[in-house]
Simulated assay, not measured.
Amino acid sequence: MTPLELLDTADLPGGGTLRLMTRHGDYMILLGRNELMSSRLSGSEEALARLACEKIRGRPRPRMLIGGLGMGFTLRQALADLPKDAAVTVAELVPKVVEWAKGPLAHLAGASLADRRVTVEVGDVQSPIARGPGQWDAILLDVDNGPDGLTIPSNDRLYGKEGLRAAYDALAVGGVLAIWSAGADKAFTERLRRARFVVEEVPVRATGGRKGAHHMIWVAVKR
């Protein structure tokens, strides 16, 4: 088998290193032995955007916050589904991930980062969440492998009681919090419900097709 080629690395706040790898035209971002994302598996990241956009369809000038740029699949899909008067803010904690999206991964994100509706902020997604009540129609979180802080332990704050309360307050009435995870987590579902969200658990194929592993999307609507 052809070995993986290392293209670049990125240090994570608090320790750890992301590695951008390629083989046979495919791209992967790894943390240790964990494959966090792959250009072959865009289906669930696209589903994250589609499911959120369905919940806010018809709203004038919708405001969306995406936590985690990744390879740009969620942003690209959101822009395809949102109207021309939408505003999308992408919060990405790791500067190198933004550089990769403009460089070796630019063909995956397309022209998304140049879209006039998009603002990219390098920093913690908790900052735009905390800016004030009712400011977002949709908040999409794909900052880790799920609600367990695998990549950065401080991500646990996003998925804990205080983090969910902050997201609830930051959403407009009827707004949606959509969260990507590599797998199901019943305890997290209950935590969302206790935070007063109306919750759907939506299993989706990682590939976007009929085969392959399932990922989980939580679609949580503010009452």
Score class of each variant (00 low, 15 high):
A52L: 03
D85H: 09
G43F: 05
D11Y: 10
L177E: 02
S181A: 15
P62A: 05
V204P: 01
Q77I: 06
R223Y: 06
E45C: 10
P203Q: 04
V176C: 10
A52C: 11
G123D: 11
L69E: 03
M64W: 14
E121C: 11
G163L: 11
R191W: 07
D148I: 12
G25P: 05
T74H: 10
K161R: 12
A138W: 00
F197P: 01
E92D: 13
R196V: 05
S154I: 11
A220I: 00
A49N: 08
H215T: 07
D148Y: 15
V199S: 02
E5Q: 13
R196E: 15
A138R: 02
A109E: 00
L171A: 00
E5K: 12
E201G: 01
R23Q: 14
V94R: 03
H215V: 09
E35A: 15
R40I: 08
I139P: 01
A167F: 02
T17E: 15
K161L: 05
I56T: 00
V198F: 08
A78V: 06
E35L: 13
L7E: 09
Y27S: 12
K55F: 01
P153D: 14
D8C: 06
A167M: 15
L75D: 07
E201P: 03
E201H: 02
A170Y: 04
L48F: 10
A220M: 00
R57V: 09
R194P: 02
G68Y: 01
G123M: 10
E201C: 03
A101W: 00
R210L: 14
K222H: 01
K186F: 11
E190S: 14
R76D: 13
M21W: 13
L41S: 12
L36M: 15
V118M: 06
P3I: 05
R61M: 11
L150Y: 14
M1Q: 13
G68L: 04
W100V: 01
M21D: 08
A49V: 11
L158M: 11
A220E: 00
R61Q: 13
L18N: 03
L4V: 08
K55H: 09
M1V: 13
G67H: 09
D185T: 02
